[in-house]
């Protein structure tokens, strides 16, 4: 997993609590983060119940997780494959478009175009790796849509690239498979449902605002879905795989809702 030297001592619990979300990716390695999250979940969420010994903490966590899985199904039911997210005029684009990741701006990955190959594996007919030039040669489209973050804020941006549905058809993906998973150069990983993968606004994004995607927005490519929250939109994608086995995700494995629809 992703490790970086921490800039602050781990003992500084208050600071970590304050910026639980973004900072933990930076300051703690994976097993410690898990333990920390479990502890804070009980501190903030369950002390009033479990402190009195009324219920077991883990029972409440399991119940919440089960409801989150139920909410995945509810969202899949509500998701209309033909309903488009609103689009906006260029004049409404948010400047500067915010940077957001599980790490800080000083740790943005620089992926070299030379030597870059997009791996495509799993339930696809054509497992050949793709160069950026080949992706750019496919028919392109762009969209100005609202990016909604799980934190609540939103921003409007302009993304261009290959409609993901045409890419999946081109590689002969099994379109009846349940999931499409993504592995990224910044060690991020996530997965989405097939109906969203085939949504007309789901874009294998190569450009931002008419320019090649800059590193801060995920060079060489990100998956842009205006029908899902920001953390479902992976950047710096290196590998795409089609599968029927639930692949989870970086934040999803820690408790964010998997469907993450909008």
């Amino acid at each position: 997993m992703f490790k970086k030297p921490s800039r602050q001592p781990l003992a500084n619990g208050d600071l970590l609590l304050k910026d639980a979300l973004k900072d933990m990716g930076r300051h703690l390695d994976q097993p410690m983060r898990r333990a920390f999250l479990q502890r804070t979940l009980s501190l903030g969420g369950l002390s009033m119940l479990s402190g009195c010994g009324i219920v077991e903490e883990s029972d409440v966590e399991n119940a919440l997780m089960k409801i989150s899985r139920f909410n995945d199904k509810a969202q899949a039911f509500l998701f209309d494959p033909n309903r488009l997210a609103p689009t906006y005029p260029d004049s409404m684009i948010t400047h500067p478009f915010p940077f957001n990741a599980y790490y800080g701006e000083d740790e943005i990955r620089e992926v070299e175009e030379e030597g870059y190959r997009l791996e495509v594996t799993g339930l696809v007919a054509d497992k050949r790796a793709w160069t950026l030039a080949e992706l750019r040669a496919m028919p392109q489209t762009d969209q100005v849509t609202r990016h909604i973050c799980v934190e609540g804020w939103s921003a409007i941006g302009k993304w261009g690239g290959v409609p993901f549905a045409s890419f999946l058809r081109r590689v002969g993906a099994d379109l009846s498979a349940k999931y499409v998973g993504f592995k990224c150069a910044d060690d991020y990983y996530t997965s989405i449902d097939m109906p969203t993968a085939l949504h007309p606004q789901t874009l294998l994004t190569l450009t931002y605002d008419g320019q090649p995607l800059p590193p801060r927005y995920g060079f060489p490519m990100k998956l842009r879905m205006p029908t899902k929250l920001g953390y479902k939109n992976p950047k710096h994608i290196q590998a795409i795989f089609v599968t029927n086995n639930y692949p989870g995700g970086y934040w999803e494995d820690q408790g964010y809702n998997w469907f993450g629809g909008s």
Partner: peptide, 13 residues
């Protein structure tokens, strides 16, 4: 909820 993810789980339950 303890953190954003936990709070969202509570809220959407």
């Amino acid at each position: 909820g303890g953190w954003l993810g936990g709070a969202i789980q509570w809220h959407f339950a």
